[in-house]
Design a protein around this nucleic acid. Structure first.
Lengths: 217, 217
DNA sequence: ATAAATATTTAGTTTTGTCTAAAAATATTT
DNA sequence: AAATATTTTTAGACAAAACTAAATATTTAT
């Protein structure tokens, strides 16, 4: 597997989680920052390797083999992120770019040893689940903060958007994984929320609320 | 810098340490397992980037810039090896191949953090010195076991050959970095040595002796 | 010092992953 | 349902890094 092939597999995987039908050529091109024609070329190659099922003009889906491979790449990415944050004290907004490189290192033994070294973490620093060596991962009943009921006790468990800007905004507001959140009120006009965060009151926009995952209790 | 360019720079660096004059095209080809014509192509490219000084037919030397870059690649390789052995419990014969991949990860901050995490090690698991962030590294007065004087107390400080076969041979004989070695006698016919190793007597061939670094005391 | 052997470079080709421009298929609008 | 718009694919080209085969330098041997 080349780095390029792995990046396509990974992008198809992430798109598949959002829309479970065939993934469009253009959607892939948008994520990888390449042209649709290049995507078509690569889909043929991945299809020859039986990593995707591809019918001309009908989009693409991962095969069993491709799906497992994608999860192994995601596993590597997220384990490296945990390493960078927990062991090397990087902040959660610094690790994505480095992990994008590290996820292509080819050694299953390395990842299993790293997994053990880190204590078999179930989630990465952004709250995303880490597949184990068999590709299995835990699922939690998380919802977006924008969908929260008023006056219930929630806890922040993840971010939908992992951009540097968003993560640094959360740091500034002292919002982190594990923060306790209660929605006190919702503004009709702009859907902004007034929330209680770790005993302090704070107003956040709808755009922030729809990028934060929470769960009850 | 591409992975390929970095591999050329690294090989030229290692060859330079052995023979300090211009490095031959063929010597590079032999180390990289490629053809001389491919080397010529790459030398032109590296010369354009001012990483090497290259005169047709006259061999190549690293520029200041290329030399520093080479040391940073070596630094990465050796720090990752320390990580793999000290933190993930790999054996010294398993780490070279993985480090060959990891050495191309591009993040100075990552390496400086890893360096700190490992306690700023001065040597890798094979006894090779690790350049610091400025490219400086310690030198020790090491000699080959094949050049040792009789009946002096030496300590094993490194291996010249890091092949899996050699390292596993050393494991089998319980020879490791830090082992105490005294040469009891040398056979005229084949230059084999009878040595005292950690209080036991052992016979080793000349080929082994000329791949083990030792120092006095 | 010339001939033979070796080393290096040049020229032209291949593969991978990309691109542009044009053609073809599908989707949307009227 | 036809016309228009959008999406996707094809065809042909390019750059990087390798290759082969031929040409040219350099080194070694006679």
């Amino acid at each position: 597997m080349t780095v390029s092939e792995e990046n396509y597999i990974k992008v198809i995987y992430h798109l598949s989680l959002v829309s479970p039908k065939g993934i469009n050529t253009n959607a892939i091109a948008g994520m990888i920052d390449t042209k649709a024609s290049s995507v078509t070329d690569m889909l043929k190659k991945l299809s020859d390797k039986e990593l995707v099922s591809y019918q001309k003009y009908q989009g693409v889906t991962l095969t069993e083999k491709g799906f497992y491979l994608a999860k192994m790449i995601v596993r590597k990415h997220r384990l490296w992120e945990v390493f960078l944050v927990n062991k090397l004290h990087f902040t959660w907004d610094e690790v994505h770019e480095i992990a994008e490189e590290l996820e292509h290192i080819q050694s299953e033994k390395l990842m299993n040893r790293l997994d053990e070294f880190l204590g078999f973490p179930a989630f990465d620093p952004h709250g995303d689940p880490i597949p184990n060596k068999n590709g299995e991962m835990v699922t939690i009943d998380k919802i977006l903060l924008s969908e929260a009921d008023l006056n219930l006790e929630y806890v922040c468990v993840g971010v939908k958007n992992s951009s540097v800007e968003f993560l640094q905004y959360l740091d500034k507001q002292k919002i982190s994984l594990g923060s306790n959140i209660k929605v006190l009120s919702k503004e009709e006009f702009d859907a902004s929320l007034t929330i209680e965060l770790n005993l302090k009151t704070l107003t956040i926009s709808h755009k922030i609320a729809e990028n934060l995952f929470i769960k009850i209790q």
